[in-house]
Amino acid sequence: MEFIAGKYNYWIYVALMMIGFYAMIAKGNLIKKIIGMNVFQTAVFLFYISIAKVREGTAPILWDRTVLYDNPVPHVLILTAIVVSVSTTAVALALIILIYREFGTMEEDEILRIQKNGSAVPPGKPE
């Protein structure tokens, strides 16, 4: 019981990571893949925040040097990783817009079929 309850944040991290990872790989819809990617990355943020926690620690603001505080380094690292995640999402969404304009769909198998069989939608004119 202690093994599960005492480290519940890590279990949440693992569960979220698997859900996100599954969506990234198994889903055929390009937007759903991006949602999966965001869940996957958020799970990693939770993991970093979890490892920063010190038992009985407070926010790392140095009012008084005797107070026990959390490790601020993972927080800083994950701020960078959040920026990276936002940029990745932005690039991915931009690509999806271009794909939608070109093929008129966001389903991967349909796009592959259109690529193989020639244009279903005239370029530049989505339905």
Partner: peptide
Amino acid sequence: KREALLASYNYLILGTIAATFILIGIG
């Protein structure tokens, strides 16, 4: 080329998985 869009998207998904794995390793 319009095929480049999906190629780039797939690279993005796999590249992000790779980079996030590396991030987890660093953690």
